[in-house]
Design a binder for these strands. Structure first.
Lengths: 210, 210
DNA sequence: ATGATAGCTGACAGGTTGTCATGTGTCAAT
DNA sequence: ATTGACACATGACAACCTGTCAGCTATCAT
């Protein structure tokens, strides 16, 4: 989405701008994030900025996309590690995001995302991603799911199950990040997963040794 | 949240401001909504605005709250009409909101909400409501649900089921409003409800005539 | 008629954004 | 070496925005 000129930039300069932008988006809600502050911090002239990005929104979406890619990759890894158990993988995802948010060490690179979530009442992230990036995702991730663990009754059941889990997990993450008592949110999320399993997991997997 | 002075205003003047605000929020994304435009349209002096609301955000949240109240009332009505069938009621809710958004006639009063949803990539509405208003809601609405229709295994099952349905329905509404093909979103939502019922609805309601 | 209290107001300082005319650097062809 | 063509860089600028504040007005009890 940024102009090609942006990608022709020396990587160092490019990263400097992105880094300043991340910091600024983490500092205040989207509406208050100032392009001025970003370009001052990155020492980029005003005009140049508009060579690279049409406006604040384009830059923001670019950063969101970055994070979206990362979440997909992470989810692939988690599904693989859990051998296709979709519920376990989603819980892992929830925990990872929560941990990332709490851990002051790990905030380095994706701190801005958490800042966004916090500052905007969790507003931007999941809705924006939800629209533009999530929807095609299940298609890519679905392959890592072990269908034998699920009670699939028609062709698109798996996709729908994925959507439901994304919706519920996404909201749970938001609650967790904003809650005063994250542990309560987690146990609440666990209970929800439990209820979802009742209708989604395959009953009595027959083969005990599995 | 607005100052008491605001409520001492002649109702006509008050409504004029709110109305202008609704229109402005419907016109552009939150970040671009201009207090200037609102007060010009409502013929309110600049200083006065800041007598009533601390800033744009307070006004916005007030309007969101208005809509939230309305949704709760609507949901109560739908649950009653459906005799406590929570799935039917949520589907009704989904359809009502979609219809309201599509119907140019009905846009009058709550059009701004739809504008907000559209303009902000569905960003503000459900997240904000989700945080501040939804959470206490299940407690109020839960009384209208007929527990005999559900497979409740522990004390907070009903509340959790409510939360799941809110999460899933909320996201479905967002998709529906932004989708090019709303019918596809609706049928997708139906399929999700169907899957959810598998784990939530009481099996074999015994009485066939029901 | 006086004072107290509440509410009203518009000019203003300080900030923001997106544009654009003019500048610079590079490279190919003469 | 000169020229033109091209992509890219730049900062001054107009137009807009917000939140404040010193001073204004209306109302009402005494």
């Amino acid at each position: 989405m940024p102009s090609t000129t942006f990608f022709n930039l020396p990587p160092e300069k490019r990263e400097k701008l992105l880094s300043a932008a991340r910091a600024e988006f983490a500092r205040v809600p989207y509406a208050e994030a100032s392009i001025n502050k970003m370009i001052q911090a990155a020492d980029i002239p005003r005009g140049s900025f508009y060579m690279y990005f049409r406006d604040k929104k384009e830059l923001f979406l670019y950063l969101m996309g970055e994070y979206g890619q990362r979440l997909i990759a992470l989810m692939e890894k988690l599904l693989e590690r859990r051998q296709g158990d979709i519920f376990a993988a989603f819980l892992d995802l929830f925990d990872r995001i929560q941990a990332e948010y709490r851990d002051p060490e790990k905030k380095e690179r994706y701190q801005h995302i958490m800042g966004i979530v916090r500052n905007n009442s969790g507003v931007q992230l999941f809705s924006l991603l939800g629209m533009e990036d999530w929807l095609p995702i299940p298609g890519r991730l679905v392959e890592w799911v072990d269908p034998r663990l699920l009670d699939l009754r028609s062709a698109d059941d798996l996709e729908k199950i994925f959507c439901i889990l994304i919706d519920v997990t996404g909201q749970a993450v938001l609650r967790g990040i904003q809650a005063e008592d994250p542990a309560a949110v987690r146990s609440s999320y666990l209970r929800m997963l439990d209820i979802l399993k009742r209708g989604m997991a395959r009953k009595q997997p027959e083969t005990q040794h599995e």
